[in-house]
Design a protein around this nucleic acid. Structure first.
Lengths: 124, 124
DNA sequence: AGCATATATCTACATTTGTAGAGATACAAG
DNA sequence: CTTGTATCTCTACAAATGTAGATATATGCT
């Protein structure tokens, strides 16, 4: 099942934190922008209904949730879809854009170079 | 103004064809999936209202449209946004995913290698 | 035990999006 | 010049999404 932007944002936090309660997630997001607790809780409820999150334990009346879907399982199809939508299915222009325009450290570049070297080796 | 998936799909066709009528766009999309003419026309109307398309000329009662927004102007922020949403703002993991997992020809790989070489040169 | 408060639950609502029908009408073909 | 048809215009609507209020209530503190 596909995730909305907000749902994905919340999932990202769960992937980082492994487990969290709605109040915790709310506090994290609130640091970036104004949002009411109930809004965040609604998103979490929807993620639970979609089986992306499960209740892991409770502490007092506070429910803790943990991710069911794994990050990679979610992001891989998103990448494919993005390439289709924005680059007519061709990965090279997206790769080129990133390598040319997006922020990369020297280490990033060198790492990516080794990936290409590997890839080339396997091709031949 | 942001574009919906369907709007973006239509814009892609305009970027390729430079100019087209609603019936033409409809026929193109219909080759991939069932969709009514009026649905496509609605999307084109919305794109016109958003100033992404303009009427370029008419032929009989058929209106031709041409893109106003350029492809790069639209895609660059989409990439940024995608990296933020899916990779917490870091481009390296997206680049790595593409270089490792997505389809690339030998030429693609060699081209990307030159980009990295350039990028490294400029960094140093 | 009583109470304040944090948390949960449930409901609501405007906007965006994909989808398309109904009806109007200009043009092409006879 | 009539008429069929392609195209346009206008309106509608359900689902998804972001947003949050109202209300209930379990807990922890005094």
């Amino acid at each position: 099942m596909s995730l909305s932007d907000f749902e994905l944002e919340v999932m990202q936090l769960f992937w980082v934190h492994k487990e969290a309660s709605a109040p915790q997630i709310h506090k994290l997001i609130e640091q970036k922008r104004a949002v009411k607790y109930t809004t965040v809780k609604t998103i979490i409820d929807r993620l639970e209904k979609k089986h992306s999150l499960k209740r892991s334990r409770t502490e007092g009346r506070t429910i803790f949730y943990a991710p069911i879907s794994e990050k990679q399982t979610v992001s891989t199809p998103l990448i494919k879809e993005f390439i289709n939508k924005v680059f007519l299915g061709k990965s090279r222009p997206l790769a080129a854009h990133i390598l040319e325009e997006e922020e990369l450290t020297l280490e990033d570049i060198e790492y990516l170079e080794t990936l290409l070297k590997e890839r080339k080796k396997d091709l031949k």
